[in-house]
Design a protein around this nucleic acid. Sequence first.
DNA 1: TACGCTGCTGAAAGCGCTTACCGGAAGCGC
DNA 2: GCGCTTCCGGTAAGCGCTTTCAGCAGCGTA
Lengths: 346, 346
Amino acid sequence: MGSKSRSGKAQPRLVDVAEQAGVSLATASRALAGRNGVSAEVAAHVRDIAATIGYVANPHARSLAGGAASVAGLLVFEIGDPYFSEIASGVIGTAAEHGWSVQISHTERRPASEAAQLRLMRASRVGAIIVAGSGYVDPAMEAAIARELDAFQESGGRAVVIGQHQVRADAVLPDNCAAAVEVAAHLIRLGHRHLAVVAGPEHLRTVADRLKGIRTALSRHGLDPDSLPVLHASFTREGGERATLEMLDARPETTAILALNDAMATGVLSALRRRGQAVPRDISVTGFDDIQVAQDLAPALTTARLPMSAMGSTAFELALLPRAQRPRRRRTDHELVVRDSTAPPR
Amino acid sequence: MGSKSRSGKAQPRLVDVAEQAGVSLATASRALAGRNGVSAEVAAHVRDIAATIGYVANPHARSLAGGAASVAGLLVFEIGDPYFSEIASGVIGTAAEHGWSVQISHTERRPASEAAQLRLMRASRVGAIIVAGSGYVDPAMEAAIARELDAFQESGGRAVVIGQHQVRADAVLPDNCAAAVEVAAHLIRLGHRHLAVVAGPEHLRTVADRLKGIRTALSRHGLDPDSLPVLHASFTREGGERATLEMLDARPETTAILALNDAMATGVLSALRRRGQAVPRDISVTGFDDIQVAQDLAPALTTARLPMSAMGSTAFELALLPRAQRPRRRRTDHELVVRDSTAPPR
DNA sequence: TACGCTGCTGAAAGCGCTTACCGGAAGCGC
DNA sequence: GCGCTTCCGGTAAGCGCTTTCAGCAGCGTA
């Protein structure tokens, strides 16, 4: 066996490969990296040996020595939220195909911790960072993120954001505004005149964009966008529930509630049930995102589908592309999915 | 400013801290690691400087040099599945509290890739591995996993499995069998005599344990456990749907369907809806796990709750504990949550 | 036959950190 | 006031890899 095998089953090192292949460390490294300067036969032989003894490079050593990174950082609001876990699934799957691993952090919806998390990721020398939260309306908060991302990219890292951000980085862009237009237009076409919005936190760019889309649709159909009732709450089931109860009291004339994501829509449906309001007979409800369970709610939720998993894949692919002069932007498609939670008003 | 600052905003290194603090590299290292051999004042001063210039250790260098690791690997079947994303949320949150980051891989439900993923994690020198899939019934498959985990632990890593496994490692153990007994007993007490099971893949230990629990309950109540109809399918909504359609045709006398997880239960409900069967009037349905959406299905799902997020937290905490002589086992609690999907048979 | 090329391969430095190991300065008893 | 211990802090080796720089064949050309 290998001359100096240690105690148990220590991981084989590059020198073990080199030794067994009868070449130097440098040659072995080059052969495995697929760089030229090594004859084809030697390269093949080295790769053979490596496979045989089960050699896998130590990523820490590789990174330290300035080699290509193969760990990506993914930052989300809350990994337990289906919206984000579906994105994560896309990122992880695609990353694995390319031999990368993915390190996930979540901010638990605390905007203040976002820049800090990014700092940590940067410090941990990941090769790429994918930010999958939402942009912020407040320029100062965006600036904090931009600072981290800029520094990261200056030191050679690749950054990709999912969603509208005020930063220099490649981006995967769902058209929240256009999708919201479709949702609102659908309701208006059904005959609704008293829409109300159950929205996520006001500071989120995603929320602002979706709201804008709804107002645009209102204007286009001759309705007053300024009188649209909007209640902000946490972007969760509980947020949706609370906001809905409040809304029902304040605006009893409402015939359609637009929740700005499916998690909130779930809460809306729950609140409506508790108040004895039938959906869609008494009130229509729409969501946003089309998370897996949207189809299984009662009634099945009409919502704007965003291709979360594909967005994750695309984000990772962007991260892998050679650095471009200007940030790349990839728009994602969206689709109004009409199910059973919307109907003409009574 | 720092004497030899590089091009842009390179990450500060330990030598920068040492230089500014006027101490040697070794002292700085010791001070930050909180090891003794450094006077309190010097240590405080070094920490001050480090905080000021925003120093964060390079984990690659730290790992290479044999320092304490701070990256944990988490292996799940599918991160997009709420069961696993809730576990991941627990792991990531607790890890972050301890300054660890988490690297996630998923097998996309391919058992064969599990050992391979573990190999990769091992090769990437994570400090701890948490396996959150399920054990396998087949000893050979367990052996493949055990091999990786053993090698990992021999080289100093900490391994924790969530669920029953035939491996030497600390474990977080939901009592699938006991929980299943409760679910089945609940149905039997309601008066059901024709139970049927919509089960996940036969090779999963989780499935076997839950089945065993159901059979136990049957016996205890004087029913024949051997005549229990069981259909195996994928552990997903689609699997549940397909199995249910088949079950309805083969066993029209069935009055209660036990799905072995909530995802499958979702499919069961969907299939029943398509077939015009009312739940729970015509057929009762139960799930397992109590993922977030279980309460929002129509009807709200009766299920056995497992504390997924807490299981993730506990798993990480076990990984952090000093190595024990014998593997530690931490049982988790479970709870029958009765909602609206179960009722006495007609 | 001798020369300059080209194409491969090897030796060695160094990435940022931890950790023996060692030397110097106090503090103590005598 | 001397030698001892104790405590601190510094020096340097080395983790496993990539990469620069040199060197050495083997070839074609004069």
